[in-house]
């Protein structure tokens, strides 16, 4: 029994089974903290003992953010150990998968937005058509192996309502259908939390998220019908990353015009240009060149040209 398991066992002993664990994960800027605050306030209002803890700040906008909310008769530790979350609310698909091991294996519920936010680190290879490294696992495959799961295109729903930023409230609506709290208190707390100008929009989003669950439950009353219900409401399957395509451009150098000022060497993001022994520009790593044109723009001597091959461009666009 390792340390984490021991801790988990200890928590179980001290808290009993009456503590509910909700783990909220997402990408910085999506409103993870807002969702967890709303949930914590509602739990408090309902007379529960609540502990909420989060990691934010270091993530900045675009990084990973998570928040633990634990509520029950008496909560001791503020964090949820691995495999002990009753509900995992993921605002981004890959973040949901990353935290999946925190979910209770037999009774856990996953609520996930199927939208993709590809982090900058996944795009290290800037070659045209290169794989982004984003997960290729589809919602259908994941939900099949879970006790209960809901994958919805919350961002799409929010965009339809009027602003993609309220996707977190859509997910709150979904969460409200699973947790056993009265609707009025959800609506009241959301109205208090969001900026006054957006109250109507947020309540609309909340209703949309809540009715989405009710509708999907109506469709799938029988447990065996579950996969269909999910398949019906799932977002369209994400595009599978294609293999790197042939380069549709060529870097044409004119060494006779080059004066060796070093600008192209220093500004190239791929570091694929060098000055040779004669102090003239040379392409040292042809495969690394992405044709971004920065060297072309900043060469004061017009010694670098990025020439697009129109035939190849047409081919790739036709095949895509």
């Amino acid at each position: 029994m390792n340390v984490i398991e021991k801790d988990a066992a200890a928590i179980e002993v001290t808290t009993g089974n009456d503590v509910k664990n909700v783990l909220i994960v997402g990408v910085g800027g999506q409103g993870v903290i807002m969702v967890s605050k709303v949930l914590a306030l509602i739990c408090q209002d309902q007379g529960h003992n609540v502990k909420q803890s989060e990691v934010h700040g270091m993530a900045k906008r675009g990084g990973t953010v998570f928040s633990h909310v634990r509520f029950g008769e008496k909560v001791w530790s503020p964090t949820i150990p691995k495999g002990k979350a009753d509900i995992l609310l993921a605002m981004e698909w890959a973040e949901g998968l990353r935290w999946l091991n925190h979910l209770k294996k037999k009774t856990g519920t996953l609520i996930a937005d199927t939208q993709h936010i590809v982090p900058p680190f996944a795009c290290l290879d800037r070659t045209r058509g290169a794989s982004s490294g984003y997960t290729t696992q589809l919602p259908g495959d994941i939900l099949e192996n879970l006790h209960d799961g809901y994958a919805l295109d919350a961002t799409g729903i929010a965009t339809e309502i009027g602003n993609f930023r309220v996707s977190n409230t859509v997910l709150l609506g979904t969460l409200s259908a699973i947790l056993d709290f009265p609707v009025e208190i959800w609506r009241k707390v959301i109205s208090e939390m969001v900026p006054p100008a957006t109250i109507d929009l947020n309540l609309k989003a909340f209703d949309a998220g809540r009715s989405w669950v009710e509708e999907s439950r109506k469709v799938g009353k029988a447990p065996e019908a579950k996969p269909e219900k999910k398949a019906k409401k799932q977002a369209p399957a994400p595009k599978v990353d294609s293999k790197p395509v042939d380069k549709d451009f060529e870097l044409v150098l004119t060494p006779e015009w080059c004066k060796g000022c070093d600008i192209c060497v220093k500004v190239c993001p791929e570091r694929c240009l060098i000055l040779n022994a004669e102090h003239k520009v040379e392409l040292s790593k042809p495969d690394a060149c992405t044709g971004c044109r920065i060297c072309e723009w900043l060469c004061p001597d017009f010694a670098i040209d990025v020439v697009k091959d129109a035939t190849k461009t047409n081919q790739t666009s036709a095949s895509a």
């Binding site: 006779e256 015009w257 080059c258 004066k259 060796g260 000022c261 070093d262 600008i263 723009w297 900043l298 060469c299 004061p300 001597d301 017009f302 010694a303 040209d305």
Partner: peptide
């Protein structure tokens, strides 16, 4: 850009790294 240049006059007389070319 070569469509707009008097190619017989190149390379131009500006110093290495002069921003005027840009």
């Amino acid at each position: 850009i070569r469509d707009y240049l008097r190619l017989e006059m190149f390379p131009h007389f500006l110093c290495p790294g002069c921003g005027h070319g840009i």
